[in-house]
Design a protein around this nucleic acid. Structure first.
Lengths: 356, 356
DNA sequence: CTGAAAGCGCTTACAG
DNA sequence: CTGAAAGCGCTTACAG
């Protein structure tokens, strides 16, 4: 195709190779001046600037970002580190989006990295992604996914500023010193359960896998609501469930095998709620006519369920945004005291709760 | 907390500040030697290397990645650009994971960027993310999301190597010259439909929003299977649907309003299949007893449906991996002819098809 | 306002 | 094997 060849030949010098020195020569000025117009520096005469701009355009020059960064002592790149998730769960995907969205408004960039590690090995044994082993490429880290104490130790050891999305932190004693952003598990179920009670429910079970600390916190919210209304909290325990959906399905069977059936169930999360719903439906029990149901997380699928699931909404993008914001503060004020932000959740009424 | 203060004071020099020159002085060698042991260069005596390593360890030195990259003329960072998706759809999230996973095995990094643009503006008007405007930070681009011709033009204009995930390319005439990776829409529905026919189905409808070219291709696969069996292809047309799920729901109503009901429906994707399933169930029609159903994409939810959805599996991680692989080839062989890879899909039999 | 020079933190021939 | 020097592509005081 000689035509395509010609088209290529017409093209101006490949930008990659044009350097600031060539532009300087073409414009008949020093390299410092080029740099000054590039950085919109104050003092450059109108005509010099015009001449430089023209040369830049003509040569298709784009400054080398790495070279600038090394002088700036800051890369304006942060690493979003997703740990121990087999695939990018929609929940975390949206946090990532939130991070990126806020970062880009500030001309910052987000590097995506993944880490798989065992909670049981010593911190030094954790093999961090290459980007965290070098220095200069990224300014800081946003830690998402499931976070065990050994990972936290490991990250601290590389002395890189970081902010953790803390809801999935497992096995910490609470007195931790690091920047963190989370959402309010406790108040989420507290609100949801209060709503059920307002609707006239009295026999309300909680179904959630409490081996996860965040589910445990949700249980506490449920328990609080029950207690303040002098109701008896009942938690369904399932051993050996295969994931949250399965936990829900097994919970439904457990409920049905009991003599007295609850009029409502608070699920530890939407997946468990889905499992409950599936299994109840199979046994011929209608939601909400015979059993009311609320979830937690407000995943995309919640609104698609039939009927749409009443659940606790978590603002995922806002979490990401807040993480990024906090990391930036940390970068600008390294000595600042550690802070923790708990973002509010919101109970969303849809159609899985019946008024008694 | 004087204790914490002390703990901090004990800490060795902050790595950020340690430079190769200080290490050289500490080890009593030239900076070139430090660089050589850093790069595992051949000729450094055992004892010199040991001394250097010790100094590096003692000072907590980590080389500045930016400085290395500028010399290497390659950043080993690629940009995953997600265009026109409001949130990171699980499908694309898994492609991203595939990209990252393959990249990390080769010590490459992935920068995540998002772009929103109108298909109708001219290419020059598309405001690319900052990372694509500079040069030197990334080596190339993996283009995902919905890709219209103007975006393709725009990307070409910045003369940065790229590979496109091509299934969501819209409005191209086919004769495009760029590297692309896709999966086989046509053969996916071809197989799915053949399977239905093998199971004894004769009246099979297709329900999918053909304003999307990829759904159109899936329709063609369905049509091919129908034709080779002398069956009449019937496509359900819905105007003004509000998303794929809604399209499915409206399709179900359409089907039920007709005198002769199909025994099976091929859906344009899993979401449409879900909509069909929801609506059929509400009308009291059981899947698969009264209507068989197949989807496309094999989203996470497909296996959770009740009964689990028979659908066409797409290997998302493999798509990402292949994109990354192809981009790397392009980087190493800039003059290489453009290539296109179509990855096979796979029909997964679950429980939504009844044998007639 | 602008040029020449020094410098960022590295790598890599060039000598020895 | 190793040091001293030149150089990557920029930015930024320092003079004038």
């Amino acid at each position: 195709m000689p035509k395509a060849q010609n088209a290529n030949a017409v093209v101006e010098a490949v930008p990659k190779k044009t350097t600031i020195r060539e532009v300087a020569r073409a414009a008949g000025v020093g390299i410092g001046t080029i740099s000054r117009v590039l950085n919109a520096s104050s003092q450059v005469s109108r005509e010099t600037r015009a001449r430089v701009l023209e040369a830049i355009r003509r040569l298709g020059f784009r400054p080398n970002a790495q070279a600038r960064r090394i002088l700036k002592r800051r890369s304006e790149i942060v690493c979003f580190l997703l740990s121990n998730r087999d695939f990018l769960h929609p929940f975390h995907a949206r946090i990532l989006q939130g991070v990126e969205s806020y970062a880009s408004t500030l001309k910052h960039h987000v590097l995506f990295a993944v880490l798989h590690y065992s909670p049981r090995i010593t911190p030094e044994k954790i093999d961090l992604p290459a980007v965290l082993q070098e220095h200069g490429l990224i300014d800081g880290i946003i830690l998402a996914g499931t976070i065990y104490p050994n990972l936290l130790r490991r990250i601290e050891s590389i002395r890189m500023p970081f902010v953790a999305f803390s809801n999935n932190v497992v096995g910490m004693d609470g007195g931790q010193q690091y920047d963190q952003v989370g959402f309010d598990d406790f108040n989420g179920t507290l609100q949801a359960t209060r709503y059920l009670i307002e609707q006239g429910h009295r026999l309300i079970d909680f179904a959630g896998d409490m081996s996860f600390p965040w589910i445990q916190r949700r249980f506490e919210g449920y328990r609080q609501a029950m207690r303040e209304n002098k109701l008896k909290p009942i938690s369904i325990t399932i051993r050996n469930s295969d994931g949250f959906v399965d936990f829900g399905q097994k919970s439904a069977r457990r409920i049905l095998s009991r003599p007295s059936r609850p009029s409502a169930v608070v699920a530890g999360n939407d997946e468990t709620a889905y499992g409950l719903w599936l299994s109840l439906r199979r046994q011929g029990l209608k939601v909400p006519e015979e059993v009311s149901l609320v979830g937690f997380d407000d995943r995309e699928e919640a609104v698609l369920m039939d009927p749409p699931l009443s659940t606790v909404r978590v603002h995922k993008e806002e979490i990401g945004e807040t993480c990024m914001k906090m990391l930036l503060e940390r970068l600008h004020h390294p000595q600042m005291a550690f802070s923790q932000r708990i973002l509010p959740t919101e109970f969303v009424v849809r159609e899985t709760v019946r008024k008694l």
